[in-house]
Simulated assay, not measured.
Amino acid sequence: MENLLGLLRIHVEKGVNLAIRDVVSSDPYVVIKMGRQKLKTRVVKKNLNPEWNDDLTLSISDPHAPIHLHVYDKDTFSMDDKMGDAEFFIGPFIEAVKMRLSGLPNNTIVTKVLPSRQNCLAEESHIMLKDGKVVQNMVLRLRNVESGEVELQLHWIDIPGSRHL
């Protein structure tokens, strides 16, 4: 952990228009993976538009490593069904954190990340200041599935004694 830059708190807000994997609905949850780290939200029963509002925290040592997001349908008697996946990068977010812009007004947009073939963004993502902290809101379009999006918000947490950005 000597290469630790800080912590990335991922607020997994909600899913929108997720795919049906059971008879009429699904019991979705999200798994976030980065390197050997694997974090999971709670399961929301029978809901294609779940509101998780769960905070998951990753230790960041390589700001260029992709973060993988997978949505699954919880099943009791069989393997959980895949409900799509997405991938995102935190490079632009880390660059904004490095600027140390705490003196700017609330909701100042620092930079925008546009949807492209290289990312899973469903719409333009804003990196902005909120209460003196850099946050990024993103809507990820799920791949390998007929429909679905997941809304996230990223927050950076500095760790005393970690190597600085």
Rank of each mutant, 00 (worst) to 15 (best):
L5R: 04
M34Y: 13
H68M: 12
P115F: 04
C120N: 12
V150S: 00
L18W: 02
K133Y: 14
G15Y: 08
D131E: 15
L140T: 08
H64V: 13
L8T: 04
M99K: 01
R143N: 07
G91C: 08
D54A: 04
E87R: 13
L104Q: 04
E123S: 11
I67W: 00
S125T: 01
I157K: 14
L101P: 02
P66V: 04
D81K: 12
G35F: 11
I32Y: 06
L5E: 02
D27G: 02
L7M: 13
L18H: 05
L101H: 03
R163F: 03
I67D: 12
F93H: 08
E13T: 11
Q153S: 09
A65C: 02
L8Q: 07
A65P: 12
R36I: 13
I90S: 02
F93R: 03
F77W: 12
N49T: 15
K33I: 10
L56S: 03
R36S: 15
V71K: 07
K46I: 14
K74E: 14
E87S: 07
M83K: 10
K38R: 10
H126A: 14
V71M: 05
Q136H: 00
D22G: 05
L58V: 08
H164T: 12
L58P: 06
I67E: 08
R163M: 09
K40R: 15
M79P: 00
L154R: 06
H64N: 15
H155F: 04
P115R: 08
D158L: 11
K133R: 11
I20N: 07
E2G: 07
D85A: 05
D85Q: 14
G91W: 06
E124R: 11
K112F: 06
N53T: 08
R117S: 15
D62F: 06
V97G: 04
